[in-house]
Amino acid sequence: MITAERKPLEELIEYIKPFKRILLLGCNECVTVCSAGGRKEVGLLASGLQMAMLKSGNNIEIRQHTLERQCDPEYVEELVPMINDADAVMSMACGCGVQEIAMRFKDKPVFPAVNTTFMGASERQGVWAERCQGCGNCLLGETGGICPIARCAKQLMNGPCGGSVTGKCEISDDVDCAWQLIWDRLKSLGLEERYMEITPAKDWRSGGGSGPRKIIREDLAE
């Protein structure tokens, strides 16, 4: 899933300062799952913004709404009746959702309320960790199912650097050494010899190196 974190309130206040009526939008997909922009966070932010604005003498009106998914035009269409009542939209969805709103409502200012952070997994309650960088050319099949690009601080594709200590990365004790994980996996799969194959320099074109990417499924696309 895509993970995100709420931006500091201060930054958000700067965005909405010029406006009176704000539509605060949540998304019931990834950002709900990572507790960044679901119905609950929308409620908390609405209340927080309201209070912060009140303090600076602005009484603004914030309406709250949470869409099933903000990155699909059909869901965004739901907003049509609400959009005219708003001077500006603040979206708690990921960057995709924010842009979808911007594309659909050309004359309405739209602001992100969260920083879209990474594609990750929930390690346990309240902890999310990066797992994928969308390089477009997956090599998990070679690395025992652990991605060295997303999970090694140096994106090493051929083994651990000299900073791997007791399974942790040199940059932080909170970060597992991806290559320790890969090695452990290879061992338990009995594929130790695979390590000896040198992974050649990566072709980054699939990873965005040749500009914004698009997927077109001919059979589905109209």
């Binding site: 507790s35 119905r39 929930s122 309650q125």
Partner: peptide, 12 residues
């Protein structure tokens, strides 16, 4: 209808 199946309740 509102549930996002996020598992947060399951874990909490």
């Amino acid at each position: 209808k509102l549930c996002a199946a996020c598992l947060i309740c399951v874990r909490a």
